[in-house]
């Protein structure tokens, strides 16, 4: 299944939806933060939103993938939702880019918070799906 043209098509369709959803979250979170910061100083408005949408997508996607991988009923679901949608919804390259853009020390904190919340979310997703520690 995973090497067939149909398997690649499932990954492509999931990848389309995952990337579009990530972009929507990124734009939405940035707009929400800008609205929340309206009336406060422009410096906060200018620097604060960097990476916030990526963090939300990465944490939510890590929980969902942990859950999916313990519960996926078929290769079809795993390829479309896991390899396609959730793996494309989350991103490592933009995470690194955001960390660099934030500079020090904010970038280091951004990495630490992303790692900590991402690992906890993945563990919770695996646990919610019934995965057992060995």
């Amino acid at each position: 299944m995973e090497r067939t043209p149909y398997g690649f098509l499932l990954v492509a369709a999931g990848g389309f939806l995952g990337a579009v959803a990530r972009h929507a979250v990124d734009v939405g979170v940035a707009a929400a933060l800008a609205a929340a910061a309206a009336g406060t100083s422009p410096e906060i408005l200018g620097g604060f939103p960097t990476g916030a949408g990526t963090l939300v997508a990465n944490v939510a996607g890590s929980f969902a993938l942990g859950l999916l991988l313990t519960r996926a009923s078929s290769d079809r679901v795993r390829l479309f939702v896991g390899t396609g949608a959730l793996s494309s919804f989350t991103t490592y390259s933009t995470f690194v880019s955001d960390a660099v853009a934030l500079g020090t020390p904010a970038g280091a904190w951004y990495v630490a918070v992303s790692y900590a919340t991402g690992f906890v979310a993945a563990a919770l997703g695996l646990a919610a799906g019934g995965w057992r520690r060995r």
Partner: peptide
């Protein structure tokens, strides 16, 4: 963004 992945890495 889609070629790289955080969720597979975290899990």
């Amino acid at each position: 963004g889609a070629f790289t992945t955080f969720s597979s890495f975290a899990v």
